[in-house]
Computed example of a mutant assay.
Amino acid sequence: MSGTSTVLKLNNSVEMPALGLGVYQSPPEETAAAVETALRDGYRLIDTAAAYRNEEQVGEGLKRSGVDRDEVFVTTKLWLSDYGYDSALRAFDASLDRLGLEYLDLYLLHQPVPLEPEPWVAAYKAAEKLLADGRVRAIGVSNHTPGLLRTLMDRTDVVPAVNQVELHPYFIQRELRELHDRLGIVTQSWSPIGGITQYWPHAPNGGRSVLQEPAVTELAAKYGKTAAQVVLRWHLQHGLCAIPKSVKAHRIAENFAVFDFALTPEEVAAVDALDTGLRSGPDPETIRLDSFGRR
């Protein structure tokens, strides 16, 4: 390992792996095998969500792997259709049942809902109860901007342990990361190698790939690594938690092989310079409870 911790300590002293497997857009029929493969390759963080419709298969992969439950950090997320206090508690129970688990390591609100704040705030208060009751080891949010984080925190008691956001070399979220550092919130990167620029309609960076940028490919050639490995290493050296998605066994293994080299500060800065400041995913400031339809 070269100078980057394999775990990150959350603001309640719980340790979370710095690299995990994401299963967004993983077909249910392929998810269990992907999770099993990842755990056998050394991953200890699996990230899913109720909206991904593959929690049951994640649970199956956990069982098939043979890895002890207490060695795996499992995250899932509450979808907007279940926001509200009582409905959030019921949705948590449903997620646990689908996963086949007795507790979660991290429970996140999947999106902010600034235009309809009451259910959003009530859902987070339900997560606070789950934390107090010991049913989840840490709670947090996803897709929250600096302003939305402060709005939520002004009305709740527990500082989120994690904010999972779009973050890749085209959108490095410097302001948000600086706020997280001040508040003790871990930044977790979804679409860490920039895949969203390929699959999200009308993405501002659509048609571009960070994996083809000379700043990345030249480093890959220098270190004998793939472009994706260089980008994941960049995340780790920023102290971020990355959750790349794949259902291909060779890619899952490849994405985890990033602890045997290190970028120089100048090389990290060169990747930083790819930032466009443009978000490719949905704008969190405009989300409503029905923005994505029911899932």
Score class of each variant (00 low, 15 high):
262 A>P: 13
264 T>C: 03
272 D>N: 11
277 G>I: 11
273 A>S: 09
264 T>E: 12
263 L>N: 03
253 A>T: 13
268 V>T: 04
255 N>H: 09
264 T>Y: 03
249 A>I: 09
255 N>D: 13
258 V>Y: 08
264 T>R: 10
252 I>T: 13
267 E>I: 15
260 D>R: 08
260 D>Q: 08
268 V>R: 00
262 A>Y: 04
281 G>N: 14
273 A>W: 06
270 A>H: 05
260 D>N: 12
257 A>Q: 15
251 R>S: 12
255 N>A: 04
271 V>P: 01
263 L>T: 07
258 V>I: 15
259 F>A: 04
282 P>T: 10
259 F>P: 06
263 L>S: 02
282 P>A: 11
250 H>A: 14
280 S>G: 10
283 D>T: 09
261 F>M: 05
257 A>S: 14
248 K>P: 11
265 P>A: 03
258 V>Q: 11
287 I>S: 00
249 A>P: 12
278 L>G: 01
283 D>R: 12
248 K>Y: 13
263 L>P: 05
273 A>V: 12
279 R>H: 03
284 P>M: 05
284 P>C: 02
284 P>T: 07
273 A>D: 11
281 G>T: 09
265 P>S: 06
252 I>F: 12
275 D>L: 10
269 A>L: 10
287 I>K: 02
250 H>Q: 15
268 V>L: 00
254 E>A: 03
270 A>V: 14
274 L>R: 03
281 G>K: 12
249 A>S: 15
285 E>R: 15
272 D>G: 01
261 F>S: 02
280 S>A: 13
258 V>N: 07
258 V>R: 11
265 P>D: 12
262 A>W: 06
280 S>I: 08
266 E>D: 15
248 K>Q: 13
285 E>F: 03
255 N>T: 05
278 L>S: 04
267 E>A: 04
266 E>F: 05
253 A>R: 15
255 N>C: 06
266 E>Q: 15
274 L>T: 13
279 R>S: 01
274 L>M: 15
271 V>R: 01
270 A>N: 05
269 A>R: 14
268 V>S: 00
262 A>H: 10
260 D>H: 07
285 E>D: 09
278 L>H: 11
250 H>P: 07
252 I>L: 14
272 D>C: 04
